[in-house]
């Protein structure tokens, strides 16, 4: 199992990088992608890009009786913008490492304007 997230220092959009790196560690795992049109597809994660577009192999639609449309499709490209959830195998996720990476990313200067927040 891959147990490291790799963070090059100069990335234009740091924000995009955490989950891009994270998904790359999950290549080869079986995941279920649920889309905003309620279609859910299970398959082996082949690749992901910076937009979090996802490619799956050996796909199967979760509710095949209702959605026979995809029967002749063996692998597919899913546009990141239409993803609602991705269900992941928990044993493939190193949560401590992931939390560290999220904290580290939070330290990076962001392009967002500094907010004005008061919480006691």
């Amino acid at each position: 199992m891959v147990r490291s997230l790799h963070f090059p220092s100069k990335t234009p959009s740091v924000s995009r990088f955490l989950f891009y790196s994270f998904f790359k560690t999950l290549v080869g795992q079986q995941v279920t992608v649920e889309l905003k049109n309620d279609l859910a597809i299970t398959g082996v994660l082949i690749s992901v890009d910076q937009f979090l577009n996802i490619k799956l192999d050996e796909i199967k639609v979760v509710d095949e009786a209702r959605y026979p449309h995809m029967i002749p499709v063996k692998n597919c490209f899913i546009r990141g913008s239409v993803v609602r959830y991705v269900q992941l195998p928990a044993q493939a996720v190193d949560t401590a490492l992931l939390q560290d990476a999220a904290r580290r990313e939070a330290q990076q200067p962001t392009t967002a304007q500094q907010g004005n927040v008061r919480v006691k």
Binding site: V2, H6, F7, P8, S9, R104, Q107, A112
Partner: peptide, 27 residues
């Protein structure tokens, strides 16, 4: 499964000390 080489520590800027202050919503 492949081994991923950890990023060299020099590639990561020294993080500011983590604080409990809330300065922006994402904090």
């Amino acid at each position: 499964m492949s081994d991923v080489v950890p990023a060299p520590t020099t590639a990561v800027p020294a993080p500011a000390p983590e604080t409990n202050a809330v300065e922006e919503p994402l904090d």
